[in-house]
Design a protein around this nucleic acid. Sequence first.
DNA 1: ATAGGTTTTGTCAAGCTTTTGTACAT
DNA 2: ATGTACAAAAGCTTGACAAAACCTAT
Lengths: 308, 308, 308
Amino acid sequence: MAASGHLRIGELSRRTEVSRELLRAWERRYGLLRPTRSEGGFRLYSPEDERRIKLMQAHLERGLSAAEAARLALAEDAEAASVDTAPPLQRGARDLRAALDALDESAAHAAIDRLLAEVSVASVLREVILPYLRALGERWAGGEVTVGQEHFASNVLRGRLLGLARGWDQGVGPRALLACPPRELHDLGLIVFGLALRGRGWRITFLGADTPLDTLAATAGSLQPDAVVLTASTPEGFASNRDAIRRLARTVPLWIAGGGATSETAQEAGAQLLDADPLGAADRLAARAPHPADARLSHRRGPLLRPP
Amino acid sequence: MAASGHLRIGELSRRTEVSRELLRAWERRYGLLRPTRSEGGFRLYSPEDERRIKLMQAHLERGLSAAEAARLALAEDAEAASVDTAPPLQRGARDLRAALDALDESAAHAAIDRLLAEVSVASVLREVILPYLRALGERWAGGEVTVGQEHFASNVLRGRLLGLARGWDQGVGPRALLACPPRELHDLGLIVFGLALRGRGWRITFLGADTPLDTLAATAGSLQPDAVVLTASTPEGFASNRDAIRRLARTVPLWIAGGGATSETAQEAGAQLLDADPLGAADRLAARAPHPADARLSHRRGPLLRPP
Amino acid sequence: MAASGHLRIGELSRRTEVSRELLRAWERRYGLLRPTRSEGGFRLYSPEDERRIKLMQAHLERGLSAAEAARLALAEDAEAASVDTAPPLQRGARDLRAALDALDESAAHAAIDRLLAEVSVASVLREVILPYLRALGERWAGGEVTVGQEHFASNVLRGRLLGLARGWDQGVGPRALLACPPRELHDLGLIVFGLALRGRGWRITFLGADTPLDTLAATAGSLQPDAVVLTASTPEGFASNRDAIRRLARTVPLWIAGGGATSETAQEAGAQLLDADPLGAADRLAARAPHPADARLSHRRGPLLRPP
DNA sequence: ATAGGTTTTGTCAAGCTTTTGTACAT
DNA sequence: ATGTACAAAAGCTTGACAAAACCTAT
């Protein structure tokens, strides 16, 4: 915080070779600088201010007008933050959220690109994407976020997650068939679950949101997956399809997960229970261990799961 | 959006060597330029305006009348502005090469990011990275490219490929141990091979360039991989370590690949031959089929490979 | 308590070349000094007081106001007094070492990801990566670690460091061109150095290991960097290229660093000396201050460094 | 191409306040 | 040693100004 100290206008002028008057003019006219003030009213400039001046100068050098140079310097500074000492994951999460809230798709992609360069996919999912989705849900419930923002964010993230998912059906591992029951439209958690399972060596076949259960049964019949996983965000997602799910569970190794998956639902449906959290669910399925609350059903495990 | 900034008429005139008056005339007469205006009424030209002027000048150079030149420039610009019709892979390859040649790391990353957003990792490797590396080798041999450019490009690509490789040791597939023999420094092909093999479900352990063969043997002893793969860019890489490689081949399932791997080398070393091309080599190893030219050794296949 | 001798104001004034009046003013106005009192009421200053004065003077030197300088001096002093190695860092370092020793890449990535979730890049480099690399060298020398382990760890870390490096060529700061001389293969320290310099606002162009000096000269000619930095792990790296390095130093602002950089080597080569430690070297270059041992060459500083 | 008017941008000045090193009386 | 005083240096705001750059219209 107090790492490098704030400068007064004289020293800043000396360092940047910009006159004091001009520094004040740039602040007044373009808002380029945002000094705090000393108790007596002196301007105190941060290192960020100094960086913005450097940017401004670079643009002026290129022949831009002062107004244009300042506009660019401010814009770049907002996105660049090239010298940022925050932990990368925290910084990435902050940048992503700001970009999505502002409906700025390219900034969102930039934030994700940088995150993926700096940390592993699993960490991005666990520390950034999932917390963001959870917070989004809460903010939506609290009316802090518009439906438009929610749709925008969902679509951007869906695109990226599916990009990461490319080729997740290839290889030699066990195969999982993933879907949401009819009327369930929240598939982001399901994609995250698929990615996590993929990271554990599984092959994924993804049917996505709002999948009729007869279609799911037919697909499972022809694919012969090692697990079929249904996720729903509310218990109704499972409850309103109880009979079909129960039938399905008799013919395929069926697991349920997501916010709507409870041990009662699982028992009623004759399915095995995974965690509500996609990453925990992936761990559990990879270990072939049903949720503890689902213990009564564990005898089904053996017959249902073929070895890879 | 605000990426590059708008120019006023003076700077545009300076850059294009077209007088201010003429710029205004071209705007009035032909609608060649479409500047926005500042609050006070100054013209603000976009980079597209600058591009149209360049086109216009080229046509004038060829002897066309101003009216005709402007008409063409506008038409071409409209075309260029519409989606770049080149296939993504071609365009990406072109952009990547231009960026790396110019030592412009950010542009190179941007090109790769765009590619990965549009096509699969396998396609990028096959259609962009590998052709680039091959062409780099040829251009280097022909003196068209400096060692500096080659080093720069290698390091940028190495970073990206190792980024894609993150987590390639996870899962349940067969395990491969990858290395280059002593003094062999070209590990990019080996990383590409590892990525391709990973795409086929294998787990990868990567030791990289310039690996002493005794440590490779020891590591293989403790890891018990399903395959050990050595790559070298020249036959000497294998030849100068013939005896050590031969000893190694007696205790581990050894395969050789890369530009230096020939059927003679393989036979001498007692190793199995993979293709020179990393992707072909990965296909072949995943199928556990040695190169046809290596048929004389095929009897070794069975005993050497443990089932996954 | 009084172990190390307390000073009275006269002696402290003499040592620090700060007038008595000013010392009292700093105490009164900023609380910078906290002298105890003799029985008769004389101020008795501790060595900590003296250290704070030195810090204060350094900040004043940099152009900070007295109030700001005092604030920083007090803050830094408090920080230095607090325990430095926070638990997450210790645990991360331990996990990373265990994972890399076991050739467990995923565990290594997980450890690094955990660190990057909580701690800045700079801290990870200083407290984890560099200590690990140093220990690795020592353990390798002592035969406690195999070359295989060393290769594996290097490649994992190289991938991560290059991931953190993405975009390090962007911005408006001074530009540095980084390379190792021919036959020098240890580029990890050079990458860490680049990251540290990046953290201080520089732009980096990275050529990496084993770079021929003529291509380095050519690249420097076209890039016109503000500094060219060569690192080698042993003095031979520089010694065996002495003449070429000397020629290079005549045309570019050349600095040498790394375990092989000594004041003799620097003098012979006509280059300026940076610290062996990458972070110290980055600090020094960012401050444009040649190594004390390099004082005899300091007259070269002016002409060699173009203003950024 | 020129004339006559406007906008943009860097600089300056006047009058007053804050900060900071030093001096002095007690 | 303490507390107060003081003055130089550095800063603040407001307002104005002029050169450079640009506009339209002829």
